[in-house]
Write a protein that binds this DNA or RNA. Structure first.
Lengths: 249, 249
DNA sequence: ACCGTCAAACTGTCCTACAGTTTAATCGTT
DNA sequence: AACGATTAAACTGTAGGACAGTTTGACGGT
């Protein structure tokens, strides 16, 4: 028999609390929307101090599992499953490792291309309908007088997000959302907001959509990759320096 | 002018502390390995209470930015940049969203394939040398009497990790590590540990490595994808039920 | 030179107190 | 009866103090 002991490190007691609550959430014992007991009650249930409970809640909050509100009906509420933790985790990585825009773009191109391919394979008519509706909204917004970066960006994000959803892989979806959120800030900062860019974007989306409609995975992937690459190049061109990303606004 | 006010939510004071310390770390004002001031000193510097400081430190610890030790030379030390936060973030996602092994595998195939392609394009002779050394170790270990799942797995992980490193994209690297760590537990649980599987693995790695050596990106990618797909299928075949992942050990 | 022992500098935990915030009930006024 | 203002209650947020537990290094005895 091969012994494989592992280093003994005393578990801090707030960790017990985190793990038990976390497990209860994962197992669905406390469904989304439901309130956890108040800090006082938790303190009694775990037979610990309020401070310890609060440290545990803080961690759960930062994992995106609960949100905490003050006031009489306040306290910790279980959140819907989301990719908050991954998002902030990637953000930390980006800022700490000084990930360059080129790296972000490379990764995005890979995922976005795959997503488009996969979507082309699996999209049903109702999926195509959803995409068409969003694209129509974008078109209308651009024609109307496209004075609003933010709204445009939200719509564009919706399109890409829906594409990811259609693939049916939550990991892919979460990663794309995460990448998008993190790249978004730089769009805002570095992408010149011109009518040209907007209509260019619309044209690209049209190409992708029609490939998805035709179930042509290869073209869809290719179009998506080119689309991403084009806008990344545009951004890089207007960046001041080395390409290392700086502080978020 | 279009006003775009955003919801006013009072910032909790521990957040100020988190942000200031975090920024100092990102900006390199406190280099890796360095100690932060003690809780008492921080409390005085931020003019707040020790509880508040502790909540902030807890968050920073969970973001993987510092590690905290007790004792006289203890306290919070700044960590090397790592992908800890992404890893736990993805783990949370997997367990909360009930991501299936098939989804994990699809994602892994995509990344691993891309990594191999990219590595084939950029690998220099010394990179190839590193891979060869690892592969030799694996071969030796398998021939020697491959009685040790853990060691084998560590070596296999090293190979894939090095491949990712060679690509030079920290995002890709972190994501692959993360995926690998999260899939690893299931390897252990579901992959039958047979001499056949081991030598099969070695053969696959040899194919990948020789494609990388030749700079043949297409073959390298293809080989990596097939390799991942094969082992994923093997695992799925021996899984008891729906394929939804269960609790980690 | 090799043990213990001990003090010092820390984090870990617990307690108490009170301020701030939100909800709902209650009361007073029209 | 309807509606606005006041207040009570149930919470979280912050502060401060106390003591236990852990690690390190220094001191002392053998």
């Amino acid at each position: 028999m091969t012994l494989s002991f592992t280093k003994m490190k005393p578990q801090k007691s707030y960790q017990h609390v985190v793990e038990q609550i976390q497990t209860a959430i994962f197992d669905g014992e406390i469904p989304p929307g439901e309130r956890l007991p108040s800090e006082m009650k938790l303190k009694d249930m775990f037979e610990t101090s309020r401070g310890t409970v609060r440290e545990a809640l803080r961690v759960l909050e930062h994992k995106g599992l609960v949100s905490i509100r003050t006031g009489v009906k306040g306290g910790a509420r279980v959140n819907e499953a989301n990719s908050e933790a991954m998002k902030t985790g990637m953000e930390t990585l980006i800022r700490h490792k000084k990930v360059s825009l080129a790296h972000l773009a490379e990764f995005r191109e890979l995922l976005e291309g795959h997503a488009a391919e996969q979507a082309a394979r699996t999209a049903g008519p109702e999926d195509v309908g959803r995409l068409e509706k969003i694209l129509a909204a974008i078109r209308e917004h651009v024609a109307d007088g496209p004075d609003n970066w933010d709204r445009f960006n939200r719509l564009d994000a919706r399109f890409h997000q829906t594409l990811a959803e259609i693939c049916g892989n939550p990991l892919l979806e979460a990663n794309l959302n995460t990448i998008h959120d993190n790249i978004h800030a730089y769009f805002h900062q570095y992408l010149p907001f011109s009518a040209d860019a907007l209509s260019d974007d619309v044209r690209d989306l049209e190409i992708i959509l029609s490939a998805v409609r035709d179930g042509d995975a290869k073209s869809a992937g290719e179009a998506a990759r080119q689309h991403v690459a084009k806008f990344s190049r545009l951004m890089e061109a207007s960046m001041p320096d080395t390409g290392s990303l700086r502080k978020m606004p």
